[in-house]
Design a protein around this nucleic acid. Structure first.
Ligand code: SF4
Ligand code: SF4
Lengths: 161, 161
DNA sequence: AATATATGAGACCTTATTAATCCTATTTAT
DNA sequence: ATAAATAGGATTAATAAGGTCTCATATATT
């Protein structure tokens, strides 16, 4: 498992869209600029996000991306695995055939457990929490969530460049 | 973070040595063959393990590697991080300067927590456990648990000072 | 001492993956 | 029709991993 640049960018993109709010259209250029993502790279990433049903892509003049789900319903795990595939710490988890002994390997079991634990942790984090300052900490590991902050929906209308 | 081939090989090497027992000398060739590791690659890996104090390397005719610590005192985390450095899931954890917003980034906190959790999990696993649970070696080359080839055991000159 | 054996240490090459860009086609508002 | 914006695939560039090679060094054996 490796958190690639593409995955990191995808998270930033989803963060930005979550701040805009569900259903708000934002141009690719604006997201790229605000979230510090190479525009062409973002285009490719968005295709994966769209394929996963997370965003809708509006083509043509005044096109852009639209968040399709409620931020609270989008987990960090979901976005990460959309970009890098199902998480597995050691290759032998993803492709057991790669190692001849995986069937009776004690270490294999450890990687499996650690993988599950990591995935569960990332599943507990949603984008509603992430756009709220107080949720910098994992609920289970730190403190309970504070009441959510009122989101400020920014108009999709942005001046060209 | 990525579990490289080198790290996986290091684990297998340490597993094999743990089965041999602390203080037992085993040739690089034997380990490479039994644990399915390219011999020259193992040589490089062993240097890192030696630098970390996990094994001792005996040069010259009838040379090889010797486990320096009790298997129960060696954690999986220790071996993994010897090979790939301190675990961090996202680059911004290892190099916060890489992202301009890490200081006030909620996602950053999640990666930190997940990282700590993963490290703790791997820290709880030691090689005593791993060798009693199951074998990690090729079935055809599978060796019994009891020490073999007693004549290769170096006379108790294993004073770890 | 001479020889054979085995590893040390690092340079080197080869391949794989990631990151980013480029180009043409397509879609849509005006 | 035109301009604005993304689609989608091809291509390139950069980085990292995986493995190999060579010469130096150490040790047991004779
Ligand atoms: S030895 Fe065990 S942990 Fe290593 S690759 Fe094989 S199955 Fe996985
Ligand atoms: S945006 Fe947050 S998680 Fe992403 S690289 Fe920056 S600090 Fe890390």
């Amino acid at each position: 498992m490796r958190l690639t640049r593409a995955a990191e960018y995808a998270i930033r993109c989803m963060l930005y869209l979550s701040r805009q709010g569900q259903g708000v259209l934002t141009s690719r250029q604006e997201i790229a600029q605000q979230a510090d993502i190479p525009t062409h790279f973002l285009a490719k990433i968005a295709q994966d996000l769209a394929k996963a049903g997370l965003i809708e892509i509006r083509q043509g003049a005044r096109g852009g991306f639209i968040l399709r789900k409620n931020p609270a319903a989008i987990t960090l795990l979901e976005v990460v695995e959309t970009m890098i595939g199902e998480i597995s710490l050691n290759d032998c988890i993803a492709r057991p055939a790669g190692c001849k002994v995986s069937y009776h390997c004690a270490v294999h079991r450890v990687w499996l457990d650690a993988r599950d634990q990591l995935r569960n942790t990332l599943r507990q984090v949603n984008f509603e929490q992430l756009i709220t300052d107080a949720s910098c900490f994992l609920p289970s590991l730190h403190m309970p969530l504070e009441p959510k902050r009122l989101e400020t929906i920014v108009s999709s209308r942005t001046d060209p460049q």
